[in-house]
Simulated assay, not measured.
Amino acid sequence: MAVQDVKANSWTQPFCKSLSFWKDCSLPALDNPGLAWSFLIATALSLVFFLYTLRHFGGQHEMEIEESKTIPNDLINYVFPYVVSFMGLDLGSTGKTLGFALFLAWMFLISYRSGQILMNPLLLVAGWQLYEIKADMEGHKRQLRALSREPVHPKQRLRSCFIQGIYVLSKPK
């Protein structure tokens, strides 16, 4: 969104005027810097908080993996609504900005109510993978979907935390 808000004349100016990187470099000017920076900072803070929280879930149950296979396409299917929402947004137009905020609120509500809140396309970038696994959890055989930052292999013992229908896996400590 911030790139869409760059002033037209900023595209013709060089990013750095010389090789002295810190002295002669400047960011492009924005048409609506307050909103653009607010969205950018809110997004960055949300992403850092989300990834921090996801990495620090303590596993409540221990399981032994019997079978595992990756599900790469499931996360990609959630990318398209996010991409569509960023096309043609004019932060200078109050109606379009409020419409965008309403769209994001609806996307959040739909994701939350459908139990797919963890299906964020940025998880792929951060190294997380979605798996379909068969596991033995406390003597019960289960087939489930799980997110893991580490590769999941048979005979591996992992801890898990159950969040909205998806297990978040971690190595035992």
Rank of each mutant, 00 (worst) to 15 (best):
T43K: 02
T43E: 05
A101K: 03
G58C: 01
D136L: 13
L124K: 11
N73V: 04
A105Y: 06
G95S: 13
V83Y: 11
Y52R: 12
L144Q: 10
H61I: 06
L123Y: 05
Q143M: 03
K96S: 09
A126T: 08
K69R: 14
Y131D: 00
K141Y: 07
A36V: 04
S148F: 00
G99P: 05
A135R: 03
L98P: 05
L123W: 04
L45M: 14
L118S: 01
I76C: 00
S85Q: 04
V125H: 08
G59E: 04
G139N: 09
Y82V: 11
V48Y: 13
L54P: 06
L104C: 08
I110Y: 14
L75S: 01
Y52P: 01
E64D: 09
L130V: 05
G88W: 10
Q143R: 13
L89M: 11
Q116I: 00
N120E: 07
E138V: 00
L123M: 11
Y78I: 00
S93A: 05
L123Q: 07
V84M: 14
L54T: 10
S38W: 12
S38M: 11
A126K: 03
W37A: 09
I76Q: 06
M119Q: 06
S38F: 13
M107C: 02
W37S: 07
M137D: 02
K96W: 13
I76M: 09
N73I: 10
Y78A: 02
Y82R: 05
L75Q: 00
F50P: 09
A101R: 04
L130N: 06
T70A: 14
T53D: 15
L35V: 07
K141D: 11
W128P: 07
L147W: 08
N120D: 08
L130P: 01
F103A: 02
L109W: 11
H140P: 00
W106C: 15
F39V: 08
P72C: 09
V125Q: 02
I71R: 15
A126Q: 00
L35K: 11
V83F: 13
L122C: 12
L89P: 12
F57A: 07
Y112N: 07
V48C: 13
L54V: 06
W106Y: 14
N120W: 04
V48L: 12
R142I: 14
Y112W: 13
T97I: 03
L123I: 05
K141Q: 08
E132D: 12
P151F: 02
G115V: 11
P81D: 05
F103D: 03
L123P: 08
L40D: 07
L147F: 15
G99W: 09
F57D: 07
I110P: 10
A126W: 12
F103I: 10
L35W: 14
S114Q: 09
L75H: 02
F103H: 14
L124M: 13
G59M: 03
A126I: 01
S148G: 09
S114C: 01
M63G: 06
R149G: 10
A44I: 09
L51M: 14
E132I: 01
F108Y: 15
H61F: 09
F86L: 15
A42D: 05
L104E: 12
W37Q: 08
G34T: 12
L118T: 02
A101Q: 00
F49C: 09
E64S: 11
S46H: 12
L47H: 07
Q116N: 15
H140K: 15
G59V: 05
A135Y: 05
V79H: 11
P151V: 06
W106E: 03
P81G: 01
W106A: 14
